[in-house]
Design a protein around this nucleic acid. Structure first.
Lengths: 234, 234
DNA sequence: GTTATTTGTTGATAAATGTCGATTTGTATT
DNA sequence: AATACAAATCGACATTTATCAACAAATAAC
């Protein structure tokens, strides 16, 4: 179970706030107000942070670690929508809807998570138009990301989807061509909408063709251009 | 080509505004301001209203007719994200992003469309917190809708996806069990992420099994419960 | 009304993808 | 190191889905 350590290793909210672009639009007073309701929880790899269907009372910001953002689909299958990195604000979808989590978040790694009370966040939206605008910007970006993901999932074949998945991890998450993967093969399958066996097969193919080098959890993107090409042709 | 008839049969913006829930949060003065920049355009069935990739300067509200909201995927294929009905505000995704349309809108029917200048809309967001909040609510609802759609597209088999498509049209769009379809068979395929041939096949199956009655464009949902069941089991 | 063109329909076939079982590898525990 | 357990791997096979060709029906153009 997750260990509750209320603002233990997060004594300095101010420094932490500086890392969150959205929060730089707040005044010192507003930040202080937001920080009073914050608390921190540590999660071990594999633990569930938010569970789909439970009630949403707080927004989430990771301060360390990685997590998967997924929805629970048919027959216990997971669909990983995206990977959560530190300093991203998570929980928008529930903010003004029905106060339920419509997705689950699970730690892919040991994580430190900071929780912000929804009502104080809403207050900032109401009283600070810059904050509201920036927040809406993030929502709309996610919308466009969703459309691209839908195209990938529904119109591309397995090679294109795996290429999309690798490029997403490499460009958006790890921001490097070479990284140590936090996702299992099953996670990669859940991210790209296919069976685990198929994901393994395509990854092996890419490896054999020299497009990537994959050894256990170590992934090295050798030919990003070709991945882009595979992504585009579907 | 679309015929431009600047506020011709839309002399009374006030009445029109009453039909748009979001606009009821605005003051009389704000509404007047928004209305000064509005103009109306008529589109014939099949015409493109927004084209993906072009620059976005206005938001769209249909005052009559139906349109499809789709993204252009791989190999000229379309993915229909949703169907647009009158009084829904369309264009959020571009509002605060890069002022480009990331999707296309095409009339499924003869449509009357009203365009609202983005900047005056943004001004309302800044000056009216209720308006901003409600707008965010709509964005988040669309987010949740997207997740459900992704699950449908990536985890359900054709029967489940067609069931989802029919239920969507019946419950959300036409709000009736019996209606005259504005979508072609190809459109239904694009809405459910499959080939036209496959869509026709499943529809025929549902027809033969007495779940629906489909004759040309006339669709009658005979057994909605069974459609729900098919949707859930994938 | 007749012709041309699109849209819809169907069966046969091929391609893509999932499932299953067996085996191996890796990791944690004692 | 030995054991237990989970994750990864792989080939064979079954199922799902797309593609193609041929044709029918509906619609638009003349």
């Amino acid at each position: 179970m997750a260990k509750f350590t209320k603002t233990d290793n997060c004594k300095n909210c101010v420094d932490c706030n500086k890392k969150i672009p959205l929060f730089q639009l707040l005044t010192k007073a507003e930040l202080t107000e937001l920080n009073t309701s914050r608390y921190e929880v540590k999660f071990k790899a594999g633990e569930t942070i938010f569970k789909q269907g439970t009630s949403a009372t707080h927004l989430l910001i990771l301060t360390s670690g990685l997590a998967k953002f997924y929805v629970e689909g048919v027959q216990e299958k997971q669909l990983i929508i995206r990977i959560i990195k530190p300093w991203e604000i998570v929980g928008q979808a529930s903010l003004y809807f029905d106060n339920r989590h419509h997705y689950s978040i699970a730690a892919l790694d040991d994580c430190t998570a900071c929780f912000i009370e929804i009502e104080s966040f809403k207050k900032m939206i109401r009283q600070n138009p810059n904050f509201a605008e920036d927040f809406i910007t993030q929502c709309t970006r996610k919308g466009v990301f969703s459309y691209e993901k839908m195209v990938s999932l529904s119109q591309k074949q397995m090679h294109g989807r795996i290429a999309d998945g690798i490029l997403y991890l490499s460009k958006r998450i790890y921001e490097s061509n070479q990284f140590s993967l936090h996702l299992s093969r099953q996670d990669i399958a859940d991210l790209t909408g296919m069976s685990k066996d198929s994901a393994i097969r395509i990854l092996k193919e890419f490896h054999n063709e020299g497009i990537i080098e994959l050894d256990g959890k170590n992934l090295n993107v050798l030919n990003a251009e070709q991945l882009e090409r595979i992504s585009e042709t579907g």
